[in-house]
Amino acid sequence: MTGPSSETGPGFWAFVAFFFMAIMLWIILRSMLARLRRIRLAEQAERDRTRAATVEQARRSVSAPLRDRPEERQRRRDEVGREGEDGEGVEDLVEPEPPR
């Protein structure tokens, strides 16, 4: 027969230390994920602003040459009016029916 074991386990204080480290790890990970989420949202907002500015700039650069100047608009009105007066060129004003 052997006597009672004299070995002792980690004990209560080891459990408290392990539990404290687990809680601290959880808090640190939660904080890190929140920071990463904010960074990702800020980057996405910046990309959206940049993309919107690029689209607006492209729209302005494309539409600027297409805008009618008053003298060009009047010249086209005169041409359309002349074509309609003598009956010639009226076909150009009417779109043909699509084939069936």
Rank of each mutant, 00 (worst) to 15 (best):
G3A: 14
E95Y: 06
V62N: 06
E85L: 13
E79M: 13
D48V: 04
D48K: 15
P65K: 05
R73T: 06
R59P: 01
M32L: 07
R100V: 00
E97Y: 03
G3Q: 11
S6V: 07
I23M: 03
G9T: 03
W26T: 09
R100M: 01
F19I: 03
R76Y: 05
G89N: 00
G81Q: 13
S63V: 06
R100K: 06
S63F: 04
F15S: 15
L93T: 03
G84Q: 11
P4Q: 05
R30P: 00
G84E: 12
Q57C: 01
R76V: 06
F20W: 14
S63R: 04
Q57W: 01
I23R: 03
D92M: 14
R77G: 11
I23A: 06
A22T: 06
V80F: 09
S61P: 00
P4F: 04
G11L: 00
E56W: 02
A42T: 03
G3C: 09
E91L: 11
A17P: 03
G81R: 11
F19C: 11
D48Q: 15
W13P: 00
I23T: 06
E85N: 11
E97L: 07
V55G: 02
R59Q: 04
Q44H: 14
R51F: 13
R59I: 01
R51E: 13
E72P: 02
R37Q: 09
E85S: 14
D86L: 10
E83R: 08
A58H: 02
G84A: 13
R40F: 13
G87Y: 00
P98T: 09
R40W: 14
Q74W: 06
I27C: 00
M1Y: 09
P98F: 15
W13S: 05
I23Y: 02
S6P: 00
S6Y: 02
R47P: 03
R40C: 11
E46P: 00
M24A: 12
V94W: 02
F19T: 12
Q74H: 04
S31A: 07
E97Q: 05
F20D: 09
S6I: 08
V16F: 08
V80A: 14
G84K: 06
P70Q: 10
R82G: 06
L41T: 09
A17V: 10
Q74K: 05
G81K: 11
M24C: 05
A14T: 07
R49E: 07
R69W: 12
A52Q: 10
E7L: 12
F18R: 15
G84W: 07
R49D: 01
R76S: 05
A34K: 01
R75I: 08
